[in-house]
Design a protein around this nucleic acid. Sequence first.
DNA 1: TTGAAAGCGCTAACAT
DNA 2: ATGTTAGCGCTTTCAA
Lengths: 339, 339
Amino acid sequence: MATRRAGQTTTRGTTISDIAAAAGVSKATVSRVMNGVSTVNADIAQRVRDVIDELGYSPSQTARSLSLGESRTVGVLVPDLENPMFHQVLNGFNRAAAADGYHVVVSDAFEDAEREPGLALDLRDRTDAIALFAPRMTRENLLDLLPRVQPVAVFNRTTGRNAPSVLVDYRQGIVLLAEHLIGLGHRSIAFLEGPAFSRSNWEREKGLDEVRERHPDVDILAVPCGHSFADGHAAWPALSETGASAAIAFNDVVALGLLGRLAQEGVSVPGDLSVVGFDDIPFSQYSSPSLTTMTSGLGDVGERLWRELRAEMVGGVGEREPVMFAPSLAERGSAGERA
Amino acid sequence: MATRRAGQTTTRGTTISDIAAAAGVSKATVSRVMNGVSTVNADIAQRVRDVIDELGYSPSQTARSLSLGESRTVGVLVPDLENPMFHQVLNGFNRAAAADGYHVVVSDAFEDAEREPGLALDLRDRTDAIALFAPRMTRENLLDLLPRVQPVAVFNRTTGRNAPSVLVDYRQGIVLLAEHLIGLGHRSIAFLEGPAFSRSNWEREKGLDEVRERHPDVDILAVPCGHSFADGHAAWPALSETGASAAIAFNDVVALGLLGRLAQEGVSVPGDLSVVGFDDIPFSQYSSPSLTTMTSGLGDVGERLWRELRAEMVGGVGEREPVMFAPSLAERGSAGERA
DNA sequence: TTGAAAGCGCTAACAT
DNA sequence: ATGTTAGCGCTTTCAA
């Protein structure tokens, strides 16, 4: 006999069985109606539909996923939802996924590198695949995680062929930025560094080394900073001491924080100091002055990331050649000729 | 006999059965080990654990959820992840949920009101409960949806007791803002309207009506605007025509967009024009000038929203008395005495 | 065209 | 302390 089993305290409201009973048909028929399977008698189908919205039934996606072996949902793990640059990537990713009939759910790691692997695992265990946006975890953790969460694709972090990856070419981007400044006559440039040990900061530093080599006459100093508005705002005293005539901020958020501070301090931009950012977040067009920055077609990046992930989901393992997006200069108001 | 059944094309890799077989124990034992159930022979437990990370097993949360009847995950539907104000609420919500052992996944509606009900339903069908952030759908759709997705809690929208709701008191907030401006000597104030038909804009308009009644000597004009940086930026010509000495923007994002435009146009803030916003997003402290705005302890709002939702999940239906958060003035640099 | 029943991967009551 | 087994809600093969 059907004894009461398992944990189920509050089992869900209306199930397919309820509908079947109420409509006087079998569960199979209800299932067919739900999934629009051709051959169901029109009258029966209608009766079932009536019962369904009378009782307000919506199928358990959990049960459906278990039975089907797929959920048509993918997860995205973002290190920090507050960072506007991720929104643009997410946007493109989402749009492309939706076009292929997939839902996307996102999970925020709140910049806690330690929790990322656990969150990724959990996310993956309830979706068909995941995308990791600029994971902050150590490389060791990443390499350990990747095989366990396949299919997976990663944005802005190399994977050693353990997963497809798409990256913004920060190295090249910062070279362009620096040379733009040099072309404007600047000979002393400060770089407001991002988080130490992050790939994105590391790449920027490497690019700067190239610039130093190519332009021995130009001084490029690094000043420790960070990645937030507050970091940019707080960097002024240190920046001021360098005597640089131009500053390359780690990203737009930092640049914007700095711009605010400069206005307070009465230093004119770009009159006294040129400031450039990176990422081209939406607000950078509306700041005063508008921000000269690097733009990377982040929406396209997101779309491409989806395509890489999708390939991983259907085909087996592909080439997994890292995909690089080259950013280009968005010349706006915050950088000018050296005074 | 166990014939090949159901759809399963690519059924997941390692299952609990594989582990059980490899370790020479029953699935129940593996399950016990996984869930840290007290009395499992230490040696056996160890053997199971060895096999587990040798084979790289992680349990299917889908199967687990189905069996348990719960997923310990809740969903949040956000109308637009790009709006910074939601991040703060999300933050508090997330933190509180995590403290209670719940994961949260978020789904972005990309400002598409039509898709919200579907997304909400789907989200709910794979989680234990959902929170709706400022849903854009019609009231009719909302009232129709609410009973179908219980437990559910909503932020910034009334529910007619069909679900708990927590709201920011925009009406009261805008009154405070306007009276602050009036105290500063302004007698002609422009309101940059948000999206028509939205509750949040409607509440603000109502607040303004109160102000008009209380201060018949003050002129309060409405100028159509929107909710984005671009909208604020574009509103200048219309705003200019009103001849107002102060502007209340629909929110901080709009205010910031306007500030950028004003700098370009050479109108000094607050010298020529005072500008105030609403929400106190992080950047508003770093803009130039820093933005005078209304602050609402949005993190606390998120936390409270979680508690309301949690109550709905455990207890039955409670009072569902709407919870109002009263914002307070954050006086900063963008508003000053009338010239 | 419809129904019966097996099975997706897991948990827990029951039996040992 | 461990195994056996039913069952979570759904889909799909197979038989009628």
